Amino acid sequence: MSKGIVTVDGLQMQYGEVQVLHEVSFEARAGEVLTLLGPNGAGKSTTIEILEGFRLRSAGRVEVLGTDPAEADESWRARVGIVLQSWRDHGNWRVGELLQHLGSYYTPYATAGVVRPWPTGELLAAVGLAESADHKIRTLSGGQRRRLDVAIGIVGRPELLFLDEPTTGFDPEARREFHELVGRLATEYGTTILLTTHDLDEASRLADRIMILTSGRIVAVGTPSELTTAIAGEDEVRWSVGGQGFRKRTADSTEFVRGLFAQYGEELRELEVRRASLEDTYLALVRGQEVAA
């Protein structure tokens, strides 16, 4: 198998007579943000749980950090970080104390040269919580609480980080700050991140590559721009001439608009170009899969 951070080949999952995953294959590369996008019931959570070693697959090959997660030991788990949708802990813990306590669990693996815990002060600075070190967890805002979740997930300085619906319930400012944090983890610290989300804008902003999963199958993989160009394809151009409105879908909106100016000149009014978006791509794929099924 490939030496990628994550390599999946022909993954299948079946519950009774229900096939949840059908021959899923993909690879996550070192230092990239790979986003798994899909509707409810597409198989995202099942895929991630198999990669994390929490669920046994029915068939196929899976390799994460050079190991089959189904056979992984504690030293392997120390190299993996997980940020769930929610995390429960005692609200009276102080932020810095909790991270220092959790970091102590990774010390045995540091001596084996596998992983070393992140110094608490550096970790707090990395996630933007340096000023909240002495605050009790119950006093944190939603955005701060989510930053702490990430700090908990990366306290062991993992090579691979799983983020599950990380910004659910965030306000726009908290979401923007969190996106900046994820970007820094990948670019400055070299963390490979596997992200699941329902948020198309989030996927477009964060992902180096996007995998679209629907009905248990990977139906597309590529950068946001590659997917948009290859699948959505057409832009929408709107304009008016002499008070009458027109609309046209075209694969080359730039050339089409040039033609409009050549034809109508100063008579051209209310010109608007709507570029094909990731949302157009996503909806086209999901609807196409539903029709095929």
Rank of each mutant, 00 (worst) to 15 (best):
R157Y: 12
I193R: 05
L37Y: 00
D9Y: 03
T229K: 14
L161V: 01
G10C: 10
N40Q: 10
D199F: 03
Q19I: 05
T192H: 07
E27D: 12
H135Q: 13
Q244F: 04
S75Q: 13
L11R: 11
S204H: 14
V64Q: 11
G153L: 04
R209D: 05
V273S: 03
Q244R: 14
V62S: 11
G10E: 15
L227I: 01
L148Q: 08
G156V: 03
L161E: 14
T223A: 11
D252C: 04
D73E: 13
D252V: 05
E226F: 04
Q14V: 14
A276K: 09
S215G: 09
G190A: 11
R275G: 13
L129F: 05
Y282R: 00
E173A: 13
N92G: 08
R116N: 13
Y106C: 10
R88M: 02
E255V: 12
R217I: 02
T281V: 05
E188C: 06
V24P: 07
Q12H: 15
S132F: 00
Q19S: 15
V291I: 06
T214Y: 00
V24G: 10
L283C: 06
I82N: 14
R238K: 00
Q289M: 07
A220G: 05
L34M: 14
R88D: 15
L206S: 08
M13I: 08
L227W: 03
L148F: 00
F261Y: 14
R287K: 13
A232T: 04
G96Q: 03
F178D: 04
E279L: 02
L37S: 01
S104A: 15
L84W: 08
Q263I: 01
R116H: 13
P119I: 10
G242P: 11
W76R: 06
T111H: 14
S141P: 04
D252I: 04
M211Y: 02
T228D: 11
A174W: 09
R29M: 00
G121L: 07
K248D: 05
L123I: 03
G113Q: 11
T228S: 12
A284R: 15
Q14G: 02
